[in-house]
Design a protein around this nucleic acid. Structure first.
Lengths: 189, 189, 189, 189
DNA sequence: AATGAATGAGCTTTCATTCAT
DNA sequence: CATGAATGAAAGCTCATTCAT
């Protein structure tokens, strides 16, 4: 008993896989259709455009993330612990969902890609937002513009995962803890 | 009396400009030829491929950098000052050469792009290499794998410049000093 | 209690409307189905083809016309009056049924369209046929082949209505009388 | 020694032939390229669009016509003779250039086609314009709006040629003279 | 009988690459 | 050496038609 969503999600999944493998411009709609096991025309029943398909794929990810990032998180914990907890979850999420990570890198040709990725993480991370802002007020965290603090956090995270994915480095729990510790040193007063 | 190199570098310059404006896939060879003031066919006298042209452009950039990054640098200075000095130079270089920065972002659709960009900076930065390694030995810098330290340094630098270029942020000397200070806190013991 | 014919005529009506608005090639079957309030598949229950649908629509129109054209007409009237009466009715009919007129213009991209339109009017107009033939016999009407006389009559009528529909001209009773008068001068001895 | 215009005119000629055979929508660019003996891409070197190609073809015709229509014409001749002369030339032109006639019928899906065709004839026929206007002033021609007079003239001409082309009628000099005579009767006082 | 999701052939258009001049 | 007209493979997208429900 196939559900109505079947084809739609097959298309989204195929797109995710292929774009993370070959990039946006290396992924023709015909290839997506083939991988998804549907006809080309079918793509256009569910998405107006190739572009809309990409956006839809992106939106699809938003939800999953917050859940992941917030898992086990509580605003009651001390600052450092809150920070470490959120960062760990971000690492867990991005490493467990390698395809999504690669896709996000490609999202929109890349110039926007990484910027959007950060926005995404930010938006997914109101927890980060409130953590950092209240940390600044309580003089636990440096008085640096929010967006720069994000660069200090997500820059290293994303870069290290890229290195991990490209095999230059094998991230394990110890190393992740070290990076997170260093990032805390970077932002704390 | 135009030299044969003239055309070659005109092509490279045109490519740099156009790719940083429109991205790799938004830049047809015909457009490059036009901007460079040469015939389309001429591109293929100097480069086998569009791909090879891109690679050549990339290679072309190495070298210029080291000079920039090392300007006014001396191994005699204290650790922190050496670090700050190198970082300042990197910022200066990347912000003064916006086209090159944009190009590197696009370099091969990005999955490799940013990683390569980091490699590039690393290779341009044996100074960083020796600084960090000797800093580790003298227990001034945290005992973290080199590549992760690079993520802690170049991740934030690249990210903040992206934000700057995209208008999300206006980097000035004060802000740059703040970021560099934070990065030092991240890597120092 | 909807009858089976309901759907068939809903489809025909939708087709008439849409083709006169957007032309044959601007009217996908899906659009017809939507306007008709039926499923796309349903169209193919009643018509083998899109083409057959068009033809059927065309055929459907025959018949309605004769009634219109013959209204108030009598063979007892004098020649000129009979001619004027028929022409007036043709004008009335074509102007009152703008959709049908537009459809006929489009009917098969036009090369056949207008010719068929004339045939249609002719066939609908045995009254014209007998009027003209007996007029020729009685030397009231010029001795010109029937088909050319039709060109002299329907050519101006169709053209002037096109101009009217496209807004180049606003036909009113006076103008119509003038045209009919001129056409009578053209064909009378 | 092939001239630079070669391919351009081959494409225009192929387009003329194919559209008059199959209509605008029945003529894919690939078919045009094949008939013209060029690659598909070549079409787009000379014309931005399929649409622009059509327009270019249309423009191409303008010039030829005036020459044809005005041949042997002089404003010194008496009214009736001037009218007959122009009409004869129009017939000659449209019958000698059957492809162009068919093309014009199709020009833009047809609803505009015939209207544009008339505009074209009108514009090509400032001679008609001045003939008719001065005829009206001198009370030789009926006081009917210009556009209606055009319908009385071009309506029958176009219709009769269509019948001729479709084989319903064989136009010869005698018949043409009869039609022209009748049209004169229609418009003269 | 009625449906509409699924299909894929076919359309227009772009662009990296070649090659005769 | 340099050129740019010519090319055609390949892209994104549409839509008449089918068929399982």
């Amino acid at each position: 008993m196939t559900q109505p969503t079947d084809k739609r999600s097959a298309i989204l999944q195929a797109t995710l896989e292929l774009i993370s493998e070959n990039g946006f411009h290396g992924t023709p709609t015909s290839m997506i259709a083939e991988r998804a096991g549907v006809g080309v025309g079918t793509i256009y029943r569910y998405f107006k455009d190739k572009e809309e398909l990409i956006h839809a794929l992106y939106e699809e990810m938003e939800g999953k993330q917050k859940i992941y990032v917030l898992e086990g998180y509580s605003e009651e914990m001390p600052f450092r612990e809150r920070f470490v907890h959120l960062c760990r979850n971000v690492y867990r999420y991005l490493m467990a969902n390698r395809l999504e990570f690669c896709f996000l890198e490609q999202y929109f040709d890349s110039p926007y890609g990484v910027t959007k990725m950060k926005q995404k993480l930010e938006s997914a991370s109101e927890p980060f937002h409130s953590l950092v802002e209240s940390g600044k007020k309580q003089q636990v965290i440096k008085d640096i513009p929010l967006i720069l603090l994000y660069s200090l956090i997500f820059g290293p995270i994303i870069n290290s995962i890229k290195d991990h994915n490209s095999g230059l480095l094998e991230l394990n729990e110890t190393l992740i803890e070290q990076v997170i510790g260093a990032m805390w040193d970077a932002i704390k007063r």
